[in-house]
Amino acid sequence: MQDEYELLEAWRAGDKRAGSQLIAARSREITWFFRNKVFDVDMVPDLVGQTFLRTVTARDRFAGETSFRRFIYAIAQNVLREYLRSVDKRAREELDFLEVCLSDLQPRTMSSLQSEKVQVQALIEALRQVPIGDQVVLEMKYFEGMSAREVGDALGIPEGTVRGRLARGLTRLREQVREQLEVAGSRGTEVTAEDVEQWATELRRLRGPS
């Protein structure tokens, strides 16, 4: 994605149009990276803005050998980490994305994403109940429709690791979706991987293409 780096360079040189094009190209994706990971919907524009701002300021520290997508996701993850630390005292000391769930930090905060579809809503809330690292890969798959390889490329981790996280995350996710549905009073039976896949497809349809 050499052209995105070019846009970035142009933006740094003062070309607002280039900045606007870059934002237009990536803002939806980055918005959806944060949408289900905040405790306050007002924070979303701020975090997305911070992420773009840092692509500008951190450019020099990034040699450009990676894709722009990996670059911007690396920044987005840092922004997320800082946000979570600022929100939660416990997270300030140690925040292990592979251990901690959003629901551990603030158990009773709902997602800023809301759907009328009960199953879709259950999926959204359940995603906040898995370790944040797993949530990241699961949401890239379910929100963006990315493959394990694409996720690996974007996050800079081996595809095998992504698959491992997806599998581990899915097991936990299915249990959490079942609980969410139970709380909503609509379903008490097992939630299969196919169910999750089906509701994720519906979610993507509601979301529309990036």
């Binding site: 607002k16 900045g19 606007s20 934002i23 237009a24 803002s27 939806r28 918005t31 959806w32 979303v44 524009p45 997305v48 803005g49 773009f52 701002l53 994403l113 759907s115 009328e116 579809k117 349809r205 509601l206 979301r207 529309g208």
Partner: peptide
């Protein structure tokens, strides 16, 4: 579904407009 769909889409566009306002 169109109504809800545009609800999320609207929110996305608002975020984009806010980011533009902030950075540009």
């Amino acid at each position: 579904l169109a109504e809800t769909s545009s609800g999320w889409a609207l929110a996305d566009r608002i975020v984009q407009a806010c980011v533009e306002h902030q950075l540009l």
